[in-house]
Every structure is written in C-alpha cells, then in structure tokens.
C-alpha cells in the first residue's frame, strides 16, 4: 500500500493565530477520508495548509513521497500552483470560481497541467458523466448558475486535473440537504484508482458509512482514528512511534 499523503506534526495558522497544533495523519491510495469537526476547529485550515494557503506553517507534508510542506512563514499561496501541478486538487469553501468565465472555460482551466491540457476533451466527457446537469450549461457564465450548480462546477474543475489527492472542503455548505446528499453520492462514485480523497464536513451523518475512515478535528488537533472498515488502528499508531 502506498502513502499518497503523509502529514507529520503539522502546525499552521494566520498571523498571531495558531489554528492547527501538531497534526499527523497518513492517507493511503484508494482511501476516502472524512474529516469532521465543528466550525472554527481547523478543518479548512488543514486542507489549506496541505495546499500551502495558510499564513504560516511548520511540519512536514509529503505528497506521493515529495516534500511539499516544511517551514514557511509568509506568502500564502506562493507555491500552491506547484503543489497543484504535483497532483493535488482542492475544491475550497466558497468554490473560488471565475464568475465571468463559462462552464466550459472552467473545465479547461482545471486541466492546466501539461498532460491534462492535451487530453482535455476526453476528460471533459468523463467529468460530465459524473455531473450530467453540467453538460447543458457549458456555454453559461458561472455567475448565473445556482449555488448547487456552482459547487458542481468547482468539483468538476478539480476532477479535470491529474490529481492524485482530491481535497473537498465542506461540499454541503449552503446547499439544500437533498442537493448536498446528491453531491456526496457523486463524490463517492468517482473512481479514485491509485489516488485518494479527503472530505472535510461539518455534517457527520452525510459521510457516516460512506468513507474509509473518519477523523475528528477538535481545537486544531486530530481526535480518534475512527475506523469504519477493516484497516486497524494499530498501524496508524505504529507509524507514530
């Protein structure tokens, strides 16, 4: 089993505010990890820290065995594009869409890595099969779509790339329960192959029973390595010490 992501003693924050305190976790190929926790306990910060978007951070983050973390005390987002090109896709809270561009432009923009750009046509077909409602909206500017459709565009854009690790921040935020359930279903159907997915979510019941592991994030620290499938807790412990 290969480790897609290996986080070791990660601390991160913004200015004088420390949000994450010594978080360690390992994500293996084929896993879907759910991170649950209340508002303000560091879920988004954890995902942002992996993408290099926090104000400062310390500790090691390895993506596919390549170090992308390390100590950084300024320049949020300065290396994000490089991390993204190494195989990360973050679908952030608030979607970070380009309001004036069309849905088709968004899907193209998701494929900015060199290989993906060449085969963006096939990839677009594949992504549209996961989110069928989007195929009718391709020529629409995103500013005119509804909240659920925007979230779909954001997820679809993330899936266009070569990403080995998909980070999804709060897929249900601001959406009707039915729509968010549908979105989570769509996320579960994605073929991860040798990749992995981390979903941060406030609503535990949305993820329960669907993901490989659930981790709780409380006050910037991981709580419990709750396991819902056969993978035991001990290997995780052993990795610690």
């Amino acid at each position: 089993m290969t480790d897609i992501l290996r986080v070791d003693e990660l601390s991160a924050g913004y200015g004088p505010l420390g949000v994450l305190h010594g978080v360690s976790m390992t994500v293996r190929a084929g896993e879907r990890i759910g991170i649950v926790g209340l508002n303000g306990h560091g879920k988004s910060t954890l995902l942002k820290a992996i993408a290099g978007l926090t104000g400062w951070q310390r500790g090691s983050i390895q993506l596919n065995g390549v170090e992308i973390g390390g100590t950084r005390s300024q320049g949020p987002g300065r290396f994000t594009h490089r991390i993204v090109r190494m195989g990360l896709a973050l679908m952030p809270q608030g979607d970070a869409l380009f309001h004036g561009l069309t849905v088709a432009d968004h899907l193209d923009s998701g494929a900015f890595t060199t290989r993906a750009w060449r085969e963006r046509k096939q990839r677009r077909e594949r992504v549209l099969a996961i989110f069928p409602p989007l195929s009718k909206l391709l020529a629409q500017p995103v500013g005119r779509l509804s909240g659920g459709e925007r979230r779909m565009v954001s997820l679809a854009r993330g899936l266009m790339s070569d990403a080995k690790l998909l980070l999804v921040d709060e897929p249900s935020l601001g959406l009707a329960p039915k729509i968010s359930r549908g979105l989570v279903e769509a996320l579960m159907q994605i073929d991860l192959a040798d990749g992995a997915m981390i979903i941060a979510e406030q609503n535990l019941s949305l993820l329960e029973g669907k993901v490989t592991r659930l981790l709780g994030l409380h006050a910037g620290k991981l709580k419990g390595g709750a396991v819902t499938q056969d993978t035991a807790l001990t290997p995780h412990l052993l990795h610690h010490h």
């Binding site: 003693e9 601390s11 991160a12 924050g13 200015g15 004088p16 505010l17 420390g18 305190h21 010594g22 104000g55 400062w56 310390r58 500790g59 005390s73």
Partner: peptide, 16 residues
C-alpha cells in the same frame, strides 16, 4: 507587534 505575534505563535508551534 504583528511580526512578533506571528513569530511567537510559530515558535510555540515549533516546540512540539
């Protein structure tokens, strides 16, 4: 002050 606050917070984080 802002710089010092940030450094202190980082230093605390470094002392794991």
């Amino acid at each position: 002050q802002a710089w010092r606050g940030k450094r202190q917070s980082e230093r605390r984080a470094a002392q794991s």
